[in-house]
Simulated assay, not measured.
Amino acid sequence: MSQSNKQNLNILFLNHNSGGAATFRRCYFLGEELVKRSHSVTILTTSKNRKFRNIIKEERDLKVVEFPSLLPGRLRNGVCPWDGLKRLIYLCGKKYDVVHAFDSRPTVLLPAIWCKYFKKIPLVMDWADWWGRGGTISERSSKLYNMTFGHIETFLEERSRGMADQSTVISTLLGERLEKLGYNKENITLLLQGSDIKNIQPQDMFLCRKQIAMDDKHFIVGHLGTLFNQDADLFFESVSKAGKTIKNIKIFLIGRHKLDMGKYRKFQDIIIESGEVKDEMLSEYLGACNILTIPFKASLANHGRWPSKLNDYMSAGRPVISTRVGDIERIFREKGIGLLSEDDPDSFSQAIVKLSLDSEICGEFGLKIRRFAENEISWEKMTDIVENVYNK
């Protein structure tokens, strides 16, 4: 990637998520750090609701261009031909030193191919989710989608990787999958999700509860964001079992969990839902919890990804329990920053009870995990890795 050996780079990020969600945050935080280092960054993404016109938002040398999409619902993100065409039109006459494509949906791949083969710009591809072949698509999508478009998604996910000059992966397992597809190991770089240590800070638990009107007597077991059904089953059963030992135990679902709560009526007495949480209040909601959790079943999708919620937990400096999945198991074991559990209700409930009985180890885990976020997995540290990739 000799073209990128310049002091100041003009970088293009390609993303398919609408509404500033999911992988867009990965792009945005990396972009913020890169512009601090005198690079220019443009992020192409999808508008949450526009159908015809682009929206351009600029802050210093970070530019976000949101493109319209004509398709409804989940199809809006990544597959709309109108979105892809508008991106190509936008790129006409523009020059970049390096292109970083985040994932492999059509609206990302189309401009990536254009820039790589027609404009001769070095291409980096990021892989942040095990999607096909038994991965996330099998857990989030319908059987009809799996049998039709799912095969196309898998084809694009795998076949597109070979055109990248360099690759970043969010998990060790995805790096291994990339190698098995014939990609050169020397060109693969592990790039975990970064932690927002500036906007999410450790807080006093009781002050947080006062701010969000939560009872001080509860023992709060928190979870942030989306839950797959199988993970929710594990989580709710575990907390219910722990409740036989811990008085006033509650599950706190923070943000949008996307569950059909009608399926979990038997747990309704122990569940508290926050609803939508503004970014500026996230520290308080996380800080109100006694412990935070990654209750993942040991599925292929969970082994192959890195949950961004964990970075928020780390920034908040709260004790964390996680099942033994992916890179989390290795990091927790090597760094001693959290408590590991098997992916069954008996083991997970025992882990909850263990932390409930030991405030000293909870405090130690909280300090260690915050320190890890600051020193090893902040967005600044992740940007160091990205710059090294661009300069190879």
Score class of each variant (00 low, 15 high):
D233W: 09
A21Q: 12
N5V: 11
N10T: 13
T168W: 00
T293N: 05
P72M: 14
V108H: 06
F348L: 04
D196K: 06
N388K: 15
D384T: 02
I56P: 03
N5D: 13
I188M: 02
H223V: 10
T168P: 04
E360D: 14
L357N: 15
I89K: 14
L88C: 07
A128W: 00
A316D: 01
Y96C: 01
F235M: 08
E158L: 11
L174Q: 09
L109P: 05
V108W: 01
K57F: 13
N311Y: 00
N229E: 15
S141W: 11
Q268V: 07
K51E: 15
R161T: 12
G182W: 03
L70A: 08
E32H: 05
F13Y: 15
E179M: 13
A22L: 08
N5A: 13
L367R: 15
E186Y: 09
A21V: 14
D204N: 15
S160N: 13
V386D: 02
C27F: 03
I197V: 15
V169F: 04
I55C: 12
E179I: 14
R133D: 15
S356P: 08
N311R: 09
K266D: 04
L355Y: 01
S171D: 03
E280H: 13
M205A: 11
S283P: 00
N10Q: 14
E276R: 07
L339C: 05
V41N: 04
G338N: 01
M214C: 11
E139L: 13
E380V: 08
N49M: 10
I113H: 10
I121N: 08
G366W: 00
S315F: 02
T107C: 03
E380A: 09
D129K: 00
T154I: 10
D269C: 07
E273G: 12
G317S: 03
L156P: 08
A242E: 00
R53H: 13
K94S: 08
Q201E: 09
S138T: 14
V108T: 10
K119D: 06
L282W: 03
R60V: 04
P319F: 03
L367M: 13
R330F: 10
W306S: 13
L367C: 11
L192E: 10
E360K: 13
I271Y: 11
R161E: 10
N8L: 07
G134F: 04
F206Q: 12
G317I: 01
F102Q: 14
T107R: 03
K6Y: 06
R50H: 05
T172F: 06
T172M: 07
A128R: 09
R26I: 05
E276H: 13
Q7T: 15
R37W: 07
S171H: 02
L173G: 11
K266Y: 04
V221G: 01
